[in-house]
Amino acid sequence: MTGHHKIAVLGVAKRFGETAGTSVNALSMIDLSIADGEFVSILGPSGCGKSSLLNIIAGFEESSTGRIEVDGKPISGPAPNRGVVFQEYALFPWLTVAGNIGFGPQSRGMRASKVNRIVSRYVELVSLTGFEQKYPHELSGGMRQRCALARCMANDPDIMLMDEPLAALDALTRVALQDELLRIWGEASRVRKKTVVYVTHSIDEAIFLSDRIVVMTPRPGRIQGEFVVPFPRPRLPEIRIHQDFHGLSDKIWLMLQAEAGRKSC
């Protein structure tokens, strides 16, 4: 599984502002490689540049230095092999659930009958059966995010980039969707395991979901440390109350705390 690198982040830095005095180092020399099929969380407080890093991997933003390689080839701009799920869902309000999910396959020129088959498959996968003809404004937050997830996966991307996808939801829905997310990821990965880069500021969420956690700290945004999550898959909801879960959570928390303390001095 860790045979070759799916994504390589090579010396990526990002600064905003041009003159030396006013420029801000959003990201400073990030090096990171992510294996094929790995679920990696990028964890950190707001302002640490984690979303910036994700946007650079997605191809939405350009880095000031360094480059991103996917399958050994440098990227240029967004591409359908790197699907994105946004915190604000970013569903197209003028399309129905089915229209949103079918957008990707349609964009890539698939026949209508094939698009329909894909749509009904993913509608079922994210449990939105019966809501195909609803518009996003008619759905709850959790349903919207499941629709956004289905839209991303309908393109069958190798890589899924998720930018705090559950942060806009209430606590109960969030926990329920974490379970859903792993189930859906597992289903979608049946043929070929999908690589996930998951940005979050929730320690517990990162532990529950990922194989590996990359901790970032702000000013300048950089990688502070990494943790491998030892829990086997499939992850059962109960591991959230396991002692080791809390042990890991505390270790990560201490790392973030130490860094925050150093900065405020």
Binding site: F60, F86, A90, C152
Partner: peptide
């Protein structure tokens, strides 16, 4: 919405 454009591009829209 900038996000709509980003979403569309990452879904493979020209």
């Amino acid at each position: 919405d900038k996000l709509h454009i980003r979403a569309a591009l990452s879904l493979g829209a020209s």
